[in-house]
Nucleic acid binder design. Structure first.
Lengths: 146, 146
DNA sequence: CTCGTTTTCTTGACTCATTCCAGAAAACGT
DNA sequence: ACGTTTTCTGGAATGAGTCAAGAAAACGAG
């Protein structure tokens, strides 16, 4: 289902450039990467790419909804190509790792804009905080109880 | 219901200091302030207080659950003294202003930790994004349609 | 396929919110 | 009143991301 980056870019009226293709392809394969991850991945296959170029691609594509940006409190932003469905995320409060969470109850459950004090609500975001598998074993002082 | 800062600090085993009292009092009166707001408010009544002191107070109190920190994506953190109940927030995506939202449906609706890929989920956070009253009038080019 | 225009990329300086550090100054138990 | 411990000050530093100006690619027309 991972759509061809070429298609995506054309569909959005963007020029096809090596950095863009590489970023989208990388993200398709590695969802929830940070900008730094993306930069690394992209450089691995293209050689030299400026950090700014990566941010440009990421920002442009976010704006056009080719990618979605997640910004977990206290961690650098992460990006994914799964857009369009408003799925939620599971985030590790220690390492920032993120995973997708499909809507729990059939449709949008608590997404009903509440009596919103003058606000125009257009989206509800749900983040489940916890510890990922790797970060659950942190008490690394494993002295056997006396 | 706003509890006495003095009580709170003592209850948490913290020393009573001018910056702490001032921060807590300010926050009680101005929920969802940013660190900068708090610093301004505190200085207004104490004269000189270092930025670091404000952050220290805020961090210490967050850790001890005397205050709660909200970190809306793309905006500086905001703080409030309403802790203990897991209410949600309404955030203006333009100016970052935040308002409280009591649980929409009786209990926690989609707060059920999903089948969490190895994660230990301990909290669900819901943010309603939109535009606050002041930010809804932004299209300031009000040419009448030709 | 060559040119010109427009978009994108590179480089490097810079911002902002926040933290780190070391020493000075307050709290408070005795 | 004192000494220990916690907290505050001042200033440098960090990390993630942005801004800005010029060089380099895309691509549509000829």
């Amino acid at each position: 289902m991972t759509p061809d980056p070429r298609e995506l870019l054309r569909g959005a009226g963007l020029r096809l450039t090596a950095p863009r293709l590489a970023v989208l392809e990388w993200l398709g394969r590695h969802p929830h990467s940070t900008a730094e991850h993306v930069a690394d991945g992209v450089r691995e296959r293209l050689g030299t790419v400026s950090t700014q170029a990566v941010y440009d691609v990421l920002n442009t594509c976010s704006r056009l909804n080719l990618v979605r940006r997640i910004e977990p409190a206290g961690h650098p932003a992460r990006y994914e190509t799964r857009t369009g469905d408003d799925h939620h995320h599971l985030v590790c409060r220690r390492c920032g790792r993120a995973e997708d969470v499909d809507h729990v109850h059939g449709a949008a459950p608590c997404l009903e804009p509440p009596n919103s004090a003058g606000f125009t609500v257009d989206r509800a975001e749900v983040v489940f905080w916890g510890l990922c598998g790797d970060c659950q074993l942190p008490p690394r002082n494993e002295e056997p109880p006396a």
